[in-house]
Amino acid sequence: MPEPVLSIRDLTVEFKTEDGVVRAVTDVTYDLFPGETLGIVGESGSGKSVSVMTMLGLVPMPPGKLVGGEALYKGRDLLKIPKKELRNIRGGEVAMIFQDPMTSLNPVFKIGDQISEALQTHRDGLSDGDARKKTIELLELVGVPYAERRYDQYPHEFSGGMRQRAMIAMAIANDPTVLIADEPTTALDVTIQAQIIEVMRAAQDETNAATILITHDLGLVAELADRVVVMYAGRVVELGDVHTIFNSPRHPYTVGLMNSLARVDLDREWLEPIPGQPPSMISPPPGCAFHPRCAFSRGRERCRTEIPPLRGFGDGLAHLSACHFAEELEAQHVTAALALEPS
């Protein structure tokens, strides 16, 4: 196996709020390998954004607080390196695409200038003219028509889809090694989503960056991801390659996610949502945070008292699950999620 470009180890982040301390992320651990796409899925509030933004220093602290952990990028811990070095990595080797293109661009600056700024920040001595030229190439690459003219337009003159293309152009401007896309399509309507997915693919081909793709959309994961991290209540509950996760999930929450997915290959009358509400992040349920909603727990005491550790299945650490009774799922998953078509 190749060396990972990025290794998150035991990352734990809290927020101080008026209602109490929110444990947004607890002991999150995963690796990102060169060239791969790692999908992170989970309900709203499960800590997906916080886990990636913490390592880029983009979580406001306070109210946030880094309780512990490491984020090793090429052997250096991003959580401990000096601010100046982190700035050099941020937007350069590690770049990020945000969820909401409507608010993520500065309304008072030209689109093109905002991209050029990203270029010039990381390339000393790049002239304005050259930055402009390069920006126009980038805009063309992500499919912004009339890039030359659109360089001088402001965000309000761009549609949502076009803005997200511009955000992608900005993220890949400096040929990143790691690209983090935080729900890049969530804020867009369905037809535009498909286009943005194509742009994401093109951007990946261009840069060959290892990509972390955060999303609610399991369809998007099936389409783009090589491996998947499933998060629940701030913890990683399952991790494995995309076929394993879809075909033989080993965590009841993942099974629930699969059942709530609309799939053309399953002739189902209705979708099954996971019952209950996402847990409170201030006082999560004791033991396994998922147990109150779990169809497999059946009131077993262990689920209520003991926090299940992530453990491996089969070939070493390629497939991990945090369920005390993961073995029981083997028999049941077949009804829950049918074979994922190899694409």
Binding site: L56, G57, L58, P60, R87, N88, I89, R90, G91, G92, A95, M96, F98, D100, T103, S104, L105, N106, P107, E117, A118, T121, H122, M167, M170
Partner: peptide, 14 residues
Amino acid sequence: NSDYVRTARAKGLH
């Protein structure tokens, strides 16, 4: 605290 300021920070600006 706005998103575009976060974007500016994510670019690596001082």
